[in-house]
């Protein structure tokens, strides 16, 4: 009875609904859509790699293909050995590296992302999208804080426990108001995290409108490989050499006793021998 009275006791001006609740929601949706198109405009086409860079990236594939079948390899032993040893030598000598074999005994330092122009470009692209994410959100939040601070906008149609108070009534310091009332700032946050589904509906699955996702992964936005983690291929290839040796130990040719298998299948051989 008491709670019923409480509910009845608070009436919201319909003007709040028309001039605050709907505008906030609409503005957030529109900004999200705008952002999607701005990000598309900002995206530079993927940089074309040079032949040497692709060769370096794909060097590992050689040995992976070789190793994948090594326990039952389709190639005879002498061919397998020559491929395997050639690869080992090339990996040790660093002939697959983009910048040629490493010089002398210089300690192999991890590549500095700031010195590589390609990585720098990637980082800049990340920063740009990041800016497009952050600036409008800050502006909207400022707008809400300035004009609608302390507004109660909406009542949820279901009861909630007290724990949700800080989530739903941010900006209103009332200890005993029903948790179902939502403040303007909280409405903003609900929209911020909850509009992704709507964007997906409007813009398709692969959209750039969702702000919450980019908050989780700064800098990496839109860049397939985080530039800070540039691979040290020299180390990778030298490590792969050990794998090659291991695979060579496990090697056996699929044709090793193929004649016995064939003869057995055709019944020329007692099956158990």
């Amino acid at each position: 009875m008491l709670s019923n009275l409480n509910v009845v006791s608070l009436y919201l001006d319909p003007q709040i609904r028309d001039w605050v609740l709907f505008p906030i929601t609409l503005v957030m949706i529109l900004v999200g859509i705008l952002r999607h198109y701005v990000v598309i405009l900002l995206q530079s086409p993927p940089k074309k790699l040079s032949r040497a860079a692709i060769r370096e990236q794909r060097a590992l594939v050689h040995s992976q293909v070789l190793r994948a079948t090594s326990t039952n390899s389709p190639v005879p032993e002498s061919f397998y050995k020559s491929i395997s040893q050639n690869l080992s030598q090339a990996f040790t000598a660093g002939t697959y590296l983009k910048d040629g074999p490493p010089q002398g005994d210089a300690p192999s330092t991890p590549p500095n992302p700031l010195s590589d122009p390609n990585a720098m470009d990637g980082m800049m692209a990340g920063m740009k999208t990041q800016m497009v994410m952050m600036v409008p959100q800050m502006v909207i939040m400022g707008w809400i804080n300035f004009f609608f601070q302390g507004f109660v906008l909406i009542k949820l149609p279901f009861p909630l426990t007290l724990g949700f108070k800080s989530m739903l009534q941010r900006g209103i310091e009332t200890p005993d108001m029903d948790v179902r009332w939502v403040s303007s700032l909280s409405w903003y946050f609900l929209n911020f995290f909850g509009l992704n589904g709507l964007y997906r509906l409007i813009l398709g699955g692969d959209n750039a409108a969702d702000a919450a996702r980019d908050m989780a992964t700064p800098f990496a936005a839109g860049v397939p490989q985080a530039p800070g983690q540039a691979q040290d291929y020299n180390k990778l290839l030298i490590a792969e050499k050990d794998n090659l040796e291991l695979a060579e130990g496990l090697y056996s040719w699929v044709g090793k006793d193929v004649e016995q298998r064939v003869l057995r299948r055709y019944g020329k051989f007692p099956p158990s021998s």
């Binding site: 389709p74 005879p76 699929v254 044709g255 193929v258 004649e259 298998r261 064939v262 299948r265």
Partner: peptide, 8 residues
């Protein structure tokens, strides 16, 4: 050997 592989 390879011909036998084909049959196999």
């Amino acid at each position: 050997k390879s011909f036998l592989n084909v049959i196999d």
